[in-house]
Amino acid sequence: MKIFVCLANVPDTTTKVKFSDNNQQFDDTGVQWVINPWDELALTRAMELKEDSGNNVDEVTVLTVGGLNTEPTIRKALAIGADNAVRIDAEPADSYVVAYLLSEYLKSYEGGYIVLAGIEASDYNGSAVGGMLSEFLDVPSVSAVSALNIEGDKVSLLREIDGGSEQVIAGVPFVAIVQKGIAKEPRIPAMRGIMMARKKPLEVIKGEAPEALAEMADFELPQVKPPCKMIEPENARELISLLQNEAKVL
């Protein structure tokens, strides 16, 4: 069996977000790119599954839709342990485009497989690729997966539901949309992995992207929070007046 891990290339979480072109574009000048944290956990789980020979996972492949600038993060995934990678060369314009291109690639794969996709990407928090991908592929999907174990030819999944969790047994192929908990913490690439990564195959295929369904109209930064107002205990009247007139909550 093969595990595909979808990898989004996102700005480092400490990036100071700026916009250009009259707030129409994300300004990526000087941005450091990283593997989307949820995808990184998915990759960690994929590696754990492969390392246990009882699971019969032959190969872990990472899939990315994006340009040349995504290759350092792909190379990191290979250094962490993925066997090979495919970069679908296209602009990841929206979730629809990304899911469509991933599905076009996956349709050609004939063996049994599991696709792992992070529940969201830390850039636009779209949370849509995994679900759309399963629709395109016409395979089941399980969302909010926090544990995944292979048991013979079935896969046992734990998913978070309101007030508890539920166990799902699935047969391959399917798409698992994973959240935190799927693996403890991301792995740090070891020197040996880094050295091997340069020799691992990174296939680049041309993506025939459909027209994006979503269009970014405008970006806006969150409003800066006004400073906290401290009221002396004896000034209850002032507090009430502020709550009534300024905060308008009373």
């Binding site: 290759e71 350092p72 190379r75 990191k76 250094a79 913490e185 740090i188 690439p189 070891a190 020197m191 880094i194 050295m195 990564a197 340069r198």
Partner: peptide
């Protein structure tokens, strides 16, 4: 190069975590 940057990042990750 990319590989040297990966090595540096591994050091950073190690120090940080």
């Amino acid at each position: 190069d990319e590989e040297q940057q990966l090595i540096a990042q591994t050091c950073d990750d190690f120090i940080e975590t």
